[in-house]
Computed example of a mutant assay.
Amino acid sequence: MSDTLESLPDRPLRQQEVTALNHADAFSLVVPVDREDAVEADTREPVVITERVILGTDDWVTGLVYDDGWLEVESVAIDDPDEERFDAMRDCEAAVADYDLE
């Protein structure tokens, strides 16, 4: 999992990056928990970003929050993705939503 954290940019993810991660072979799913409008610092172009995301594979689901760097706030191991993934996602989503960014 630490390799995953190190591979993420040191900033909130743009919507296009979440989409690209969803198409990557490394993950079965990537779900933004929240989205907000922002502007690119360099170009002042509008973008949609997320500071809270759920990552999943066939073996685990993890909730991440960007708070001066990406933090793993919950991780749930799963043996049967078809049976356990939904509950693991719900647990991670709750932990991510409860994390206070202030």
Rank of each mutant, 00 (worst) to 15 (best):
F86S: 05
A26I: 10
A95Q: 13
P46W: 06
E51Y: 03
W60P: 03
V65F: 02
D91C: 11
P81M: 14
A77L: 12
R85S: 15
D82W: 04
L55A: 14
D67F: 01
P81F: 15
D58K: 12
D59R: 14
T62V: 13
V76K: 04
T57D: 10
A95G: 09
S75E: 14
Y66C: 06
I78K: 01
D67A: 04
R52T: 11
Y66R: 04
A38P: 05
E40N: 14
D82V: 05
T62G: 14
D58H: 12
T62R: 03
A97K: 07
W60G: 04
D25L: 13
E51I: 07
V76T: 13
R52A: 13
V73P: 02
Y99F: 14
A38H: 12
V39N: 07
D79S: 11
Y66M: 06
D91A: 14
S75Q: 09
G63R: 10
V33H: 05
A95R: 08
A77T: 07
G56C: 05
D80E: 15
D98E: 13
L64E: 10
V96W: 00
V73Y: 00
D68N: 08
T57N: 12
P46T: 14
A38Y: 09
T50P: 05
E83L: 15
F27L: 04
E72H: 01
V33Y: 02
V73M: 01
E45L: 11
V48E: 10
D58V: 10
A24V: 01
F27Q: 09
E83C: 07
D79L: 14
E36L: 08
I49P: 00
V53K: 07
V61H: 02
A38W: 12
L64V: 06
F27K: 12
S28P: 09
R52M: 09
T57K: 03
V61W: 00
V76Y: 01
R35A: 13
V76M: 03
V73E: 01
R44E: 06
D98T: 03
A26T: 15
A95W: 00
L29W: 08
V47E: 07
E93Y: 00
A24R: 05
S75Y: 04
V31W: 00
W70D: 02
S75I: 12
D87E: 07
V65G: 05
E40Q: 12
D25N: 15
V61T: 08
E45D: 11
L55P: 08
E93A: 03
W60F: 15
A88E: 02
F86C: 03
D42Q: 15
D68H: 10
A88P: 04
P46C: 11
A94L: 14
R52L: 08
R35Y: 04
E45M: 15
D37K: 10
V53D: 04
V48S: 14
D37P: 03
A95K: 03
D25H: 09
W60I: 04
W60S: 07
V31G: 01
D79E: 08
A94E: 07
R90A: 15
E72L: 00
D34M: 09
